[in-house]
């Protein structure tokens, strides 16, 4: 939970930093694009059934580590800030979350041969049959 909230704060910082620290145009545009994406994915990941969406932050966090060189940032603070944010988002997004509820095997069950929700269904049926005296 706190890791995702931290990611949201970092994403908002990416959006605000260009005006606060007076970045050049390339770094500004980059922050204005990547910031909202990280905020979006981290917000969706706040809910247990969609926590997996936090992993979608990976490519954008990696991009933040590379972008000072690829885009040629003019301001040194922009490079430092973006790389620090990229590092932190990468680490925070890889944190495992303890699940309170079960979701029938989750999204990956949709392309599994023996999804969890079907196993549970069979268990329920046989249990019901036992109770009915079969």
């Amino acid at each position: 939970m706190w890791a995702k909230l931290m990611n949201i704060v970092l994403g908002i910082w990416l959006m605000a930093a260009p005006s606060v620290l007076e970045y050049g145009p390339a770094a500004s545009d980059n922050g204005h694009i990547v910031g909202p994406i990280i905020v979006t994915f981290s917000t969706i990941a706040l809910w247990e059934s969609t926590y997996i969406v936090q992993k979608w932050n990976y490519p954008f966090a990696l991009w933040l580590l590379l972008s000072p060189w690829v885009l040629g940032y003019e301001v040194a603070t922009a490079s430092m800030s973006d790389m620090a944010v990229g590092m932190m988002v990468l680490v925070l997004s890889s944190r495992k979350t303890g699940m309170k509820n079960r979701y029938g095997g989750g999204w990956s069950s949709l392309w599994e041969k023996n999804p969890k929700h079907m196993e549970d269904q069979r268990d329920n049926e046989s249990e019901a049959e036992r109770r009915e005296g079969f």
Binding site: W47, S49, T50, Y103, G104, G106, L110
Partner: peptide
């Protein structure tokens, strides 16, 4: 953005 997460669990149940 806030609406997406809580709406998706129901969709998952229907897809399963």
């Amino acid at each position: 953005i806030v609406m997406i997460g809580p709406a998706m669990d129901e969709m998952l149940a229907s897809l399963q």
